[in-house]
Write a protein that binds this DNA or RNA. Sequence first.
DNA 1: CCGATGTGTCTAGACATATCGAAATGTTGA
DNA 2: TCAACATTTCGATATGTCTAGACACATCGG
Lengths: 103, 103
Amino acid sequence: MNRNYSRAIPAEWRAMSKVFEALGDEHRQRLVLSFEPGERLNVSQLAEVSTLARSTVSHHLKILREAGVLESEKTGKEVWYWINKAWLMQVFEDVTEHLRKRL
Amino acid sequence: MNRNYSRAIPAEWRAMSKVFEALGDEHRQRLVLSFEPGERLNVSQLAEVSTLARSTVSHHLKILREAGVLESEKTGKEVWYWINKAWLMQVFEDVTEHLRKRL
DNA sequence: CCGATGTGTCTAGACATATCGAAATGTTGA
DNA sequence: TCAACATTTCGATATGTCTAGACACATCGG
């Protein structure tokens, strides 16, 4: 048994922690699932398909961005979001690997 | 763009949803990380290393069990918990695969 | 410069979750 | 049967999150 409960969370779990938190919400899952491969969407488009108010969508996008799930870039008035696919897959694989070897 | 925001969440995401929610909490992460490979731990042992009250630990274990992260079995007075490793790895791999192919 | 547009922030209320201690439940052994 | 033990449930409170609308800020076109 690993007794030092308060020790640092492993790096791959720490990164994953934010992702777990971000993707634990169903609305945020649906936002992520609105993307097609390689696609970039702006806030208006995402708010349009969502059932939520635009400000609420903005709030959820912020959480997804801070978790590293989404990336964003502002061009003119619009802010375009896309899935941080490579990084996200890497984090998932790291956690799977940690699970395989250590737990 | 996938416009039907309210459609059903894919099966592998639905299973993952509970896992995300369960592992989004740092205390629950620490509980899971207390296990060594193949090990079974009871509530008292987990409560002992935790900084939380016994009843609170029990509450978190219930969430982890309902999410499928942990399994449990009662033998006599004690309830033993262990990580549902094979299933958990499968779910992670399914999500990674969905991410690779569809997003 | 001004109005229209796209986005983010702030606020407040509703709602959900976390937490602990006490009480209840179930189990074992004397 | 009874006392001790392990765990869960319950009640109360504190804390955090979700949500919409009002407002602020930046950008673009006229």
